Computed example of a mutant assay.
Amino acid sequence: MTVAADSLQLATELGQLLLRKKWTITTAESCTGGGIGYWLTAVAGSSAYIDRGFITYSNKAKQQLLGVRSATLLQFGAVSEDTVREMAEGAAKAANANLAIAVSGIAGPDGGSEYKPVGTVCFGFFLNGQLATQRLVFTGDRQQVRQQAIDYALKQSIELLTAVIQ
């Protein structure tokens, strides 16, 4: 399978779960630049479960559109579990969605540090009032890091939603 086929398959599976649960989804994306939203809306009929998404690349956008606190950004940085937690919660509230996926990371080739190397991506998941976060480090070039983040976000959302349905 190709990357596109994998991503479309994941988005289709997630969409079926959302339809089954009668839930809606939104995204708050930084390093993925709308990639998750792209794949979600590539599925025919996705308007039944997605109304809007947010590309919040700058800190200003994270604050204005999602309500991320400046204190959080100053203390922990844009690429942190604290920030994606607030991004996910803010996106869910702004879109009135049951499920929100937030992603912020360092796709490279520059911008990394010893503590946050290139490939570091933080994920936030808001699932009907519950919040979960994760921090992963992917390898590869900019496009590979972004694609891995997109697919991981879709897979993790499927796992979280499947656990709720069962």
Rank of each mutant, 00 (worst) to 15 (best):
K155A: 14
N59H: 05
A91R: 01
V121D: 01
Q148P: 05
E159F: 00
R142M: 10
Q166K: 07
S104N: 08
T120P: 03
Q75S: 13
R20V: 14
A95Q: 05
A100M: 05
L40K: 00
A132W: 00
E81M: 10
F138P: 08
Y49F: 15
N96E: 15
S70A: 15
D82E: 13
L127P: 04
G112Y: 05
D82W: 02
A163Q: 09
D151Q: 12
L161Y: 03
G105S: 11
G33R: 00
S157M: 04
S7P: 06
T12L: 12
D110E: 11
L8K: 06
L8P: 03
D82G: 03
G35C: 05
G33C: 10
L19Q: 08
L160V: 11
N98K: 06
Q148L: 10
A91T: 07
Q144G: 10
Q130W: 02
A48K: 02
Q9Y: 06
L10R: 04
W39G: 06
Q64M: 14
P109S: 10
A107R: 00
V3R: 08
Q63M: 15
T133M: 03
A95Y: 02
D6E: 14
M87G: 06
A88Y: 01
L19S: 09
I158Q: 00
D151N: 14
G112H: 05
T162E: 10
R69E: 14
A153Y: 01
V84R: 00
Q75M: 11
T139I: 13
Y152Q: 11
L136P: 03
E29M: 07
A97L: 09
Q166F: 07
S30C: 13
M1T: 15
A102E: 09
R135W: 04
T26K: 01
L14V: 14
L73M: 05
L65G: 06
F76R: 04
R69T: 12
E29N: 07
Q75T: 15
T12R: 05
A107M: 07
A163D: 09
T133C: 09
Q63S: 12
Q64H: 08
E159Q: 06
A132F: 07
Q75V: 13
N128F: 01
V121L: 05
A102N: 08
A149Q: 02
T83M: 07
A107Y: 00
K21D: 15
F76N: 07
A91D: 04
V103R: 00
L14M: 11
K60L: 14
Q156E: 15
I106D: 02
